[in-house]
């Protein structure tokens, strides 16, 4: 049985990344970052390949990949909404934002991504934009002083663009 990776991905990319970091096991984290940038997540096959290439036990690579919250082993949505729940944002009402966005996207329980993999909603602790609390980052753009209404409007915009 074989698994297909997204068609844009070429196996060669991993080799390129590995070469870029001299196949140095100490560079595991930057390598995983580069791999994740390429594939949007860390597919198991690729991690195994990385482990083999760096001469590391696969369990160790898995351990590193699951330690850092930036890494994900399941595909993330196309649009990533990161909500700050740092102190400043929290006291300025980030919880209400989260609720509003999750409700609009119909996310329940521990679910982070919509089933169509269009959206992933995460919380982070402090984006360093505390002066603008509460802050939300949508696809790498920071939005400050967001209200639940504004947050939902931003999401709507994306939904409409996708439709």
């Amino acid at each position: 049985m074989e698994k297909e990776l997204s068609s844009a991905t070429q196996f060669g990319k991993v080799c390129e990344i590995l070469d870029r970091y001299d196949r140095d096991p100490a560079k595991l984290i930057p390598i995983l970052q580069a791999v994740q940038e390429e594939y949007r997540y860390l597919p198991e096959e690729i991690l195994t390949l990385v482990a083999t290439s760096l001469n590391l036990p696969p369990a160790k690579v898995y351990g590193v990949a699951t330690f850092y919250s930036h890494f994900t082993l399941t595909p993330k949505g196309k649009h990533i909404i990161r909500l700050c729940d740092g102190t400043a944002c929290h006291v300025k009402g980030s919880t209400a934002l989260l609720d509003a966005i999750r409700k609009r996207l119909g996310l329940t329980g521990k679910q982070q991504s919509t089933p169509d993999l269009l959206f992933t909603v995460e919380t982070v602790s402090c984006l360093g934009a505390c002066g603008l609390a509460p802050a939300v980052v949508i696809d790498d753009k920071v939005h400050g002083q967001v209200t639940p209404e504004k947050a939902v409007a931003l999401v709507e915009e994306l939904i409409n663009a996708e439709a």
Binding site: D85, G86, T87, A88, H90, S125, C126, G128, A129, C130
Partner: peptide, 8 residues
């Protein structure tokens, strides 16, 4: 690393 939430 500045991880403290609410510090920048």
């Amino acid at each position: 690393d500045e991880g403290d939430p609410g510090a920048f």
